[in-house]
Simulated scan of single mutants.
Amino acid sequence: MVLSFAMKKLIIALGVLVLIYLAATLIVPPYIESQRNPVKSSPPYSVSSDAQALYERLDFISDLHCDALLWGRDLTQRGSRGQVDFPRMREANVALEMFTIVSKSPAGQNMQSNSSDAFDNITPLTIAKGESPSNWFSLINRTLSQSQNLADFIQDEDGNAIFVKNKADLNKLISARKNDESVIGGMLGIEGAHALEGDIENLNRVYEAGVRMIGLTHFFDNELGGSAHGQSQAGLTEFGKSVVQKMNELGIFVDLAHCSPAIVDDVLEMTTMPVMVSHTGVRAVLDSQRNLSDLQIQKIAENGGIIGIAFFDEAVGVPELPNIIASIKHVRDLVGIEYVALGSDYDGSVAVPFDITGFPLLVEGMMNAGFSEAEIKAIMGENVKRFFLTNLR
């Protein structure tokens, strides 16, 4: 068969386009991530000898929110960009990280108001990463793909990482770390239940994939109700109520981060499980619609929930480190030490003051603010351990 000159030109053109696309998958995602997830102060970090000694006495360190799965990095390898990966978790002696899945994010992504119809930033990133075309325009497929990525990363660790899906897995992690602190754990959450695409059957699919926490909204309103940054400020829809009920039945924690005040109230009125706020600030430190009011903090504590304090400026203000400490202190003073934890929002398209290896800076900051060793241990991870040991099934 002899190809015509026009056909040869077409084949060459298609080949060039494929090569350009493949090159883009190697160049574009790392560039976007480096721009979206800067670290204001680069490692290594140093603290006083007393702070370092206390840090080394911490038995269980945990963080409730990290979006590292979004960017396509191999988390088993130490990265030159971003804020979290398995090697850096080990360097910081972090026992458990909640890896959260972002499936859609609106262009502009501001704290005040976002339309659910706004251009989605994640679609071009998904294409640029070279993901399967089945993920390009499907939120649930993106979600299940990121879930599988975490499972694959953990499997590649040959027993040195544990996918925590239930209380038995957590006890296995705690036991393993008594003999080998290089063993780490990962849990799986979703940032924004728009990922369910309005189909409650998808809740079963993400549960089977290992998801144990779901934030009901992200930066825009969805089928479940209003976002703190959306246009309606509505409470739970009937679909939203059915999803919360089903989450309770399955044992998936409701994450109230980014939810409208009306959704916060609706969930706390109906949930049969303690809630989480995986990454937030408090209005007493930074008065933002993104953050929790004192009344909300009190209601969450009454529910037996847990509140993760975020690390970025739009949640805590600047300078970040003293404001992180002030936010933790406010929750402690208002409702008690047992309700507060770390919720960094690492790799969540935010600039942070330090990456995960900078956790000793938090210990030093709390020591300087007069926190006791027992309180510091609680905040750095014991509260999270107790919460999951009590409430995971």
Rank of each mutant, 00 (worst) to 15 (best):
M273Q: 14
L203W: 09
L75Y: 11
N391L: 10
M98N: 13
A118H: 06
V282I: 09
V16E: 02
T143L: 15
K165N: 11
T100A: 08
Q289R: 14
S46P: 07
E181A: 11
H258A: 00
N222R: 05
L14Q: 12
K40T: 12
S260R: 15
A6R: 14
I140Q: 08
A209S: 13
L144N: 01
R90F: 00
S116N: 09
N93Q: 12
S105L: 15
V267A: 03
R283N: 04
Y207M: 10
K377D: 15
T280Y: 02
K246Y: 10
E238N: 14
I12W: 14
N93C: 00
K167S: 12
I122N: 11
G305K: 09
R332V: 11
M111V: 15
N149F: 14
A301E: 01
S41W: 12
M276Q: 10
G79M: 09
L75G: 07
A351R: 11
G370Q: 01
L150I: 07
M367Q: 15
G159S: 13
L70T: 15
S49E: 13
E375F: 04
N166L: 04
L321R: 05
L342D: 04
Y21M: 06
E314A: 13
K167L: 07
E375I: 08
Q298H: 05
S62K: 01
L392M: 15
P38W: 01
F119D: 13
L361S: 06
F99I: 08
N141E: 14
E223L: 07
T123A: 10
S4W: 11
I127A: 01
I122E: 11
K241E: 15
D152V: 09
V331M: 03
K246S: 13
T143G: 11
I27S: 08
L342P: 03
V102H: 10
P322G: 00
A23C: 06
D266P: 08
I300A: 06
P319W: 10
S145G: 11
S113K: 14
K385Q: 10
S293E: 03
S62Y: 02
F359S: 05
M111H: 15
S278K: 13
F387V: 12
K165A: 03
V244G: 00
L292A: 03
V183M: 02
D333I: 03
V363Y: 02
G308D: 04
F60H: 12
G240L: 00
V243I: 12
L125T: 08
A151S: 09
L188S: 00
L361R: 12
N303R: 05
P87Y: 07
P274E: 03
G343N: 02
L19Y: 13
V277F: 01
A374K: 15
F359K: 02
A301Q: 03
S42Y: 13
Q146K: 15
S242W: 05
D345E: 01
Q77F: 07
S327A: 04
I174V: 05
V84H: 00
G130Y: 10
